[in-house]
Structure formats: structure tokens, C-alpha cells
């Protein structure tokens, strides 16, 4: 299972990177969302999957799934949510001000 999940994480990553390399802002934002999904899966897989019970202490049970990656991912989910929504609004505002969302038209001038 871990190997399959590693491949899935890689696939999500590849798709995310491909989108980030595109010119349209919306695609770039979608790309970052895919990247964070891939990263979360990646972290989870590194801590081995499906060993023991969910990490909530219950009398008599000794084996639990690794709680540490889960804690890290939880933080990361929230942060990537912040980043994605910020980027989305940024893309929206950029389009409002510049009437374009193509990256190669948004280069600015030499004076900047």
C-alpha cells in the first residue's frame, strides 16, 4: 500500500508542478492546491500506514497509528488553506486591476 500511495503522491505532485508552470493565474492557484495534497499524502506515507488503532488513547490498547505525521499534516492543511485562499483572492485582484491573468503580461516594468 505504501508504495502505491507514494506513487499517488508523486502523481499529484507532478500534476501540481505542471500547472504551476502554466501562464494562467488560476491554473497556478489550482497547482498549489494539488501540491499541498501531494505533500500531505507524502508525509502520511512516510510514517507507515494502517499500523494499530487511530491515535486516540483507549484502555487496554497498546498499538496506535503514528500520531506525529498526523499532527504535522493537520498544521499543514490549515496553512495551505490560508495560502490557497490568499492566492485566489490575489489572482482575483490582479485580474481586476490589470485586466489580464496571463503571467507573461504581468511582468512589470524595468523601473520596478
Amino acid at each position: 500500500m505504501e508504495i502505491l500511495m507514494s506513487i499517488l503522491a508523486g502523481t499529484l505532485f507532478a500534476a501540481g508542478v505542471y500547472l504551476i508552470l502554466q501562464k494562467q493565474l488560476l491554473k497556478i492557484v489550482l497547482g498549489t492546491a494539488l501540491l499541498s495534497h501531494g505533500a500531505h499524502l507524502f508525509i502520511l506515507t512516510m510514517g507507515k500506514l494502517n499500523r494499530g488503532k487511530p491515535p486516540i488513547l483507549i484502555e487496554g490498547i497498546k498499538d496506535y497509528t503514528d500520531p506525529l505525521p498526523q499532527a504535522l499534516i493537520l498544521t499543514s492543511i490549515v496553512i495551505s488553506f490560508g495560502v490557497t485562499s490568499f492566492l485566489l483572492v490575489l489572482a482575483y485582484r490582479t485580474y481586476q486591476s490589470n485586466k489580464t491573468d496571463m503571467m507573461d503580461q504581468l511582468r512589470g516594468t524595468d523601473d520596478e
Binding site: 505504501e2 503522491a9 508523486g10 507532478a14 500534476a15 508542478v17 508552470l21 507524502f42 506515507t45 512516510m46
Partner: peptide, 20 residues
């Protein structure tokens, strides 16, 4: 673009499998 994306994804898979 495709090569860069595919190699990045492949690298991530390799790292994930190795670390596991």
C-alpha cells in the same frame, strides 16, 4: 514542462519509498 513535472513527481515518489 512535462519533463520537469514528471521528474519532480518521480523524485518525490523515490524519496517517499526510500524513506519508508
Amino acid at each position: 514542462d512535462f519533463v520537469i513535472a514528471a521528474s519532480t513527481g518521480a523524485l518525490l515518489t523515490v524519496v517517499a519509498i526510500s524513506s519508508h
